[in-house]
Amino acid sequence: MFAELNSILNSSPESFKQGEFILVSDRQTDASFLIHHFLSFYLRAGCKVCFLGLVQSFSHYSAVSQRLGVSLNQAREKGQLVFLEGLKESLGVLLQGDTSNGTPALDFLRDPSSGLRGLYDFVHGNIRGSEGRAEDWGPPVLMVDDLSVVLSLGVSVGAVLDFSHYCRATFCSELQGTMVILVRCEAEEEEEESDEGSERLQRGLTHQCSLTLQVQGLPTGYCRDIHGEVEVCWRGRCDGLQIQRKLFQYKVCDKGTLFFARGTSSAVL
């Protein structure tokens, strides 16, 4: 959890806006530090977190969270964290090939055209299942790292957008929870014309979300002291104000991330 980012987003584990859909996207760089931030943030806030880890193993997230002062193992044992380890589960689905074992969550691996309904049912079931029991966790949170990976597994952009719409209807509107989704944009500019692709997915999700954090590498290339730029963009929903943007540069450190206004890095001043 990065205190600086909390003050930028005007939130803290004690009080944060509910019903938000946060879209994290990156281009030519890696925005997973923000996923680690939000994971530790919502675990500290006492929310029930459902994490779909599609690109890394549980031990990876666990190791990073340990550094940020949150134990994923404990949270998992307490039932606060539901973790879908995509890499492990998908192996079971692909190698054994029969539907009896393994969750139906990853059914799309076998038949990409069927869409992500299985994955939604998994998420929905986990959140609904916990509702009957003691209500000791805060509003539910869904996190996905990263959603664009299902595109390369053959799922169409439309199916992914249907999935995110259902998640948004359930988490943000019905249960007043939060959603954090990471998507990766391919750097190719010429891709823009084609109708299927991560660009289109990102645009579709941007239409749905209420806050975007767009991470980009520096246009001038690699720099030791500034790792990239984050554009924070609040998309006005009910108030007449439309879109509000702020641009920061950041540097990922060992135990946190520094955010500063453009051109005010300690290496420059």
């Binding site: 249907d162 719409h165 209807a169 509107s173 009910c238």
Partner: peptide
């Protein structure tokens, strides 16, 4: 979210057909 900001006195003449929560019949 949709009704937010709209004048409440005329709200009964606005009929909202909810295709938001389950547009594909999944739930």
């Amino acid at each position: 979210e949709f009704r937010d900001g709209l004048d409440r006195t005329n709200a009964q003449r606005l009929h909202f057909h909810n295709a938001y929560s389950d547009p594909l019949g999944w739930t």
